[in-house]
């Protein structure tokens, strides 16, 4: 169905994601819909998310690459107004990985977590580690 008429760019991106995956990132297309990817990002070392495996779903809309890939609830400017068609699946996933290394409490998804992070970073980091163990241990 959706796999017919897949733009050459998407085929190329997919091939490169599979043949030369970025370290700590895997993205594989679903068999039923080649615009739908199952993504896994490893928590960066020396971050509270180290040891965690973060699963994401990524979808390439019909307008891609003129429109950004659709991901879950992630607050990242390049997925919104800062999207450029020169960006790719790979660069988006690398940006998400980088966001795990350097969270941005000034532009948060969750106000509460950001407040906590700004008020008491050490404690917030402990919570992040705990939640990584509980919810992202990969098993």
């Amino acid at each position: 169905m959706a796999n017919s008429n897949l733009p050459r760019r998407i085929i190329k991106e997919t091939q490169r994601l599979l043949s030369e995956p970025a370290p700590g990132i895997s993205a594989s297309p679903s068999e039923e819909n080649m615009r739908y990817f199952n993504v896994m990002i490893l928590g960066p070392s020396q971050s509270p998310y180290e040891g965690g495996v973060f699963k994401l779903e990524l979808f390439l809309p019909e307008e891609y690459p003129m429109a950004s890939p659709k991901l879950g609830r992630i607050c990242l400017d390049i997925l919104k107004d800062k999207w450029s068609p020169a960006l790719q699946i790979r660069t988006v996933l690398l940006s998400i990985q980088a966001l795990l290394s350097a969270p941005n409490p000034d532009d948060p998804l969750s106000e509460n977590v950001a407040k906590h992070w700004k008020a008491n970073e050490a404690e917030a980091v402990e919570t992040a580690k705990e939640w990584t163990r509980l919810y992202a241990s990969g098993v």
């Binding site: 733009p7 050459r8 760019r9 690459p65 003129m66 068609p85 020169a86």
Partner: peptide, 13 residues
């Protein structure tokens, strides 16, 4: 011709 810098950044073709 797979050299990425030579191709259009949008269609990559």
């Amino acid at each position: 011709d797979e050299e990425p810098e030579k191709d259009c950044v949008i269609c990559m073709s």
